[in-house]
Design a binder for these strands. Structure first.
Lengths: 203, 203
DNA sequence: CCTACCGATCGGTAGG
DNA sequence: CCTACCGATCGGTAGG
């Protein structure tokens, strides 16, 4: 009869997390408007109205998933940068690329949900997500500026274009199936080589 | 009283086109499920039911917009390749990149609609769109293979990764506002330099 | 966490 | 191309 309050709290957190996981998966696969509360609750073995015991609205739920999608990637990338040799800026960038692509494909569907739904989510949510995106963008801005100041980059290169090139390459991997037998890490290393060593033959 | 049948036909084609243009804009901005037939018809100054005088269903309308989105880009890129010097494969790639990015931003919102809605559109539409995407992909496959065979690319480079790098960089430009004063052409040229000359300093 | 329900909106159709 | 309408589904709520 008597329930352990701690285990009850843990149960609720578990359900909480399960709902978020399911939402991430459905958002990534079907998009914002096509993901109904009934889809989500059904996959979580509950009724639509019951979601409101955990979240105040669909949009709160969505916003949490999408912002988590960035933060999970950002945390991994920050960690990879932190344990890279400070005197080897290119190696740091390489490790950041590996971390970013690995996180994209290993963080459930949170990151995919963000990338795929960002443009179509209600404006007030998007405005707040934009600041989260910019925070992560700052990580890359700083890393590339460091590499540039250290003289590791080609003279005259536009750091903004470089940053968007890298982000575009990495995020686009969500659009295609990975070539057979290639791990996210190998993928990232190949991308690094293309951008930094250059694709053209050097004589 | 008597109407010129030719002008009537032209009127209908004009309305046809207007509906497609509006649909492209709304799809790119709001996504597939959030774009209702009432939104579209309202913007075209007609009633929802009247759209069925022009199109059989929402999905037919959507599919036309999204497949046009690729074909408009593909046509421009093919044309750019055709008038490039056959003996300068890197110059050809550069021109193709310029054409792709220009078409992305100058073809109304058709291309943006495709890129943003592809993953969330009903499966049967997506399946057919996939073949359209693959046709365009073949253009890049052939172009890169030609450059490789001509010895213009770095030894050991993975052509698949290179192709996806380029497509990813270019399509990601839809996600951000273009830096002030930079034209799509200048953008494309900067991207070409990054990928083919390499971002790292060469000693 | 469920039952039962609300008003709003959706894609689509009949008949003109 | 419009009017008037259909059944289905949506996000959300009251009361338990």
């Amino acid at each position: 009869m008597a329930t352990d309050p701690n285990s009850t709290v843990r149960e609720r957190d578990k359900t909480h997390r399960k709902i978020l996981d399911i939402t991430a998966e459905l958002l990534a696969r079907n998009g914002y408007a096509s993901t109904s509360l009934r889809d989500i609750s059904g996959a979580a073995n509950m009724k639509a109205g019951s979601l409101y015991y955990h979240f105040a609205s669909k949009d709160e739920l969505v916003e949490r998933v999408l912002s988590q999608g960035i933060k999970l990637v950002e945390d991994k990338v920050r960690a990879a940068i932190a344990k890279s040799p400070p005197d080897q800026p290119l190696e740091t960038i390489r490790n950041a690329m590996i971390a970013h692509i690995q996180a994209l494909h290993d963080s459930g569907d949170y990151a995919a949900a963000n990338i795929r739904c960002y443009a179509h989510v209600p404006l007030d949510i998007r405005r707040r997500l934009r600041t989260v995106r910019m925070d992560y963008d700052d990580v890359w801005k700083a890393m590339l500026a460091t590499a540039h100041d250290a003289g590791a980059l080609r003279k005259g290169i536009d750091l903004t274009s470089l940053r968007y090139s890298l982000i575009g390459i990495m995020n686009w991997t969500l659009e295609w199936k990975r070539p057979k037998g290639q791990s996210p890490r190998e993928q990232a290393e190949e991308f690094f080589a293309i951008v930094f060593d250059g694709a053209a033959k050097t004589d």
